[in-house]
């Protein structure tokens, strides 16, 4: 093997490599896909849990939708304050904040107050327990307390309390509503953060049956309705409910409730 052969081999391989490099270099420029620089930045500002509360397939998909103008900058429920302001700034629109909401359990029927229908000894899962003869608690509106919502919370805002009901951490809750969607009883609702008072019962049994089922049940006596100076409380079905827009936070209703289901929200 002479020097020329070695050199030709080297030259050919080198030439091939250079040609391919040039082709790839040109292709890189020619086929460059423009990615809107705002997309990654907006993705940074979103919740980052891919919770799906916005209705898009994850945070990146929402960021793309915001850039395309399909979604409002404030769509993400988990993105608040500075982060949301940054998104609005990137999109060049006025920062407008949706009234922040937090998940709230509309039930106070804990292990002591709620009457038990039967001893449930199966898989600790609300959905399964709910399907078994109407659930372990007599009240069919009550929180089952197996903690499905805890598993569903992407932000670690729910923990099981000692009383057998999930406790919601307002500071961590982003109001994405994932827990509310999956609760088989629909016992979780999103309440405005500022809400002062709420009637934490939504049963539709008659007063006597409701009272038998749970010591904390709303029996629809309407005493709170009469006590309310702002007319914010009204009877819906067989239980009372507070209209948060009208509520002035005077807490008169909490003083008259015979059952103790009108609660101040901390």
């Amino acid at each position: 093997m002479s020097w020329t052969t070695i050199l030709t081999a080297g030259a050919v391989m080198g030439a091939l490599a250079i040609i391919f490099a040039i082709i790839l270099g040109i292709a890189d420029k020619k086929f460059a896909v423009e990615i809107d620089a705002r997309v990654p930045e907006i993705t940074e500002c979103l919740g980052g849990a891919n919770c799906g509360a916005c209705g898009y397939a994850g945070c990146a998909a929402l960021a793309e939708a915001i850039v395309r103008g399909e979604a409002e900058p404030n769509t993400c429920p988990a993105s608040k304050g500075e982060k949301m302001a940054r998104i609005s700034e990137l999109m060049g629109v006025e920062a407008s904040s949706k009234a922040p909401v937090v998940a709230t359990l509309i039930c106070t029927g804990d292990c002591e107050t709620a009457a038990v229908r039967y001893e449930y000894d199966g898989v600790p899962n609300c959905r399964i327990a709910n399907g078994l003869a109407g659930g372990p608690k007599k009240c069919t509106w009550a929180c089952i307390g197996m903690g499905d919502c805890i598993k569903d919370c992407k932000f670690g805002a729910i923990a099981m309390g000692k009383n057998g009901l999930p406790q919601f951490n307002k500071a961590k809750c982003t109001g994405c509503g994932a827990c509310a969607k999956q609760c088989p009883r629909g016992a979780i609702t999103l309440m405005p953060v500022e809400a002062k008072v709420a009637i934490l019962c939504r049963n539709d049994d008659n007063g006597k049956a409701a009272k038998d089922n749970c010591k904390n049940a709303c029996i629809g006596c309407r005493r709170c309705e009469k006590a309310c100076p702002a007319g914010a409380i009204s009877l819906i079905g067989k239980h009372c409910a507070v209209d948060q827009e009208k509520c002035i936070g005077c807490l008169e209703c909490t003083k008259v409730c015979p059952m103790g289901c009108v609660a101040t929200l901390k």
Partner: peptide, 12 residues
């Protein structure tokens, strides 16, 4: 190089 090229081409 071919795979790289195809990838760029498809992306676009």
């Amino acid at each position: 190089s071919l795979v790289q090229f195809v990838e760029m081409f498809l992306k676009k």
